[in-house]
């Protein structure tokens, strides 16, 4: 349906996105994962024809949309990261406005507005001014606006940033429902691993403008099949202990957070006795040593050496 071929975007002397390749098939939920500044928003701006790539192509049904974006624009809905709504208008007036610019009118517009308000759970607040809404309600309306003209492909740029868990769940369920009931194709960008794991069929992981991994959830997790992730928790972690970890040749990665350290080691290595000896030598007391089931977060750690939210 939609394909990105060697897509790059250069701002002044820096590449925000470099040689990006990805494809989206009809009816899929695709996750685009990466930390802040990874280039996700730039990628979807190019994909949705809002900015022109410096190099590469975006192909919709095998035709480039860079010079002629009209066919793609007809079938997409975009949920921007910002709350792109008129805050001085009511929820209903916002939907009516965006409906009108998509040439909906009369009874059809009214029916669509009612439907969307129902889907996003704002029917009771339809006549309230948007600026009186909570962050979660604004986010829901932000999504509702993009659904109004029933796009075949909906692009969501971090739609759950800064909202409460209840609204977040509501949004995730809404995305799932749209995909299942209306067969809407969804491109979902986020830096929340668990959202992408829950929603998406296939995942692309970006970092520093590059695509560093892609595939289904299982395929991506298999990147870690040769390693195991171990979480060490201890009181008063000191530099001596961390240096021991770094110096040990069997430990592939060491990532220190506040009171815990994550390490990655080859599956066949029994690291426990080594860790206990290191703790004794460094004079620290270990609280726990756990082997973790690999998550996408671990894959990201493995690929970049950083946590997603760093």
């Amino acid at each position: 349906m939609l394909e990105l071929v060697d897509l790059s975007k250069k701002f002044k002397h820096m590449y925000a996105v470099k040689n990006l390749n990805m494809f989206i098939e009809k009816g899929e939920i695709i996750g685009l994962l990466g930390p802040n500044g990874a280039g996700k928003s730039t990628a979807i701006s190019m994909l949705s024809s809002l900015i022109e790539p410096t190099e590469g192509d975006v192909r919709f049904h095998n035709k480039s949309i860079i010079k002629n974006p009209a066919p793609l624009r007809k079938i997409i809905g975009v949920v921007p990261q910002e709350i792109a709504l008129y805050e001085d208008l009511t929820a209903e007036e916002n939907l009516q406005f965006f409906g009108k610019i998509y040439r909906l009118k009369g009874q059809l517009l009214k029916r669509k507005v009612d439907e969307v308000l129902e889907q996003i759970g704002l029917t009771d607040r339809r006549r309230d001014i948007v600026k009186t809404f909570s962050g979660g309600m604004k986010r829901r309306l932000n999504i509702g606006v993009a659904m109004l003209h029933e796009p075949e492909l909906i692009i969501m740029d971090e739609p759950t940033v800064g909202i409460d868990p209840q609204s977040r769940n509501y949004i995730l369920e809404t995305v799932k429902r749209l995909n299942q009931e209306k067969q809407m194709t969804v491109l979902y960008t986020s830096h929340y691993m668990e959202e992408v794991e829950y929603l998406c069929d296939r995942i692309y992981i970006m970092d520093k403008g590059n695509m560093i991994a892609s595939g289904t959830k299982d395929e991506i997790k298999r990147i870690l099949s040769a390693e195991k992730t171990i979480l060490i928790q201890a009181e008063l972690l000191n530099d001596t202990f961390i240096n021991f970890l770094h110096e040990n040749p069997t430990i592939n990665r060491v990532i220190k957070e506040e009171k815990e350290i994550t390490i990655m080691v080859p599956k066949e290595i029994n690291i426990f006795p080594i860790l206990v000896k290191m703790a004794e030598d460094a004079k620290i007391e270990l609280n726990s040593v756990d082997i973790k089931i690999p998550t996408l977060e671990d894959v990201f750690l493995h690929l970049t050496g950083r946590a997603l939210r760093d």
């Binding site: 949705s48 624009r73 007809k74 975009v78 921007p80 910002e82 792109a84 998509y102």
Partner: peptide, 14 residues
Amino acid sequence: KKEGIWDRIILSPV
């Protein structure tokens, strides 16, 4: 333009 409303309208038939 900053809030993305402009982009939304650009993507519409307007």
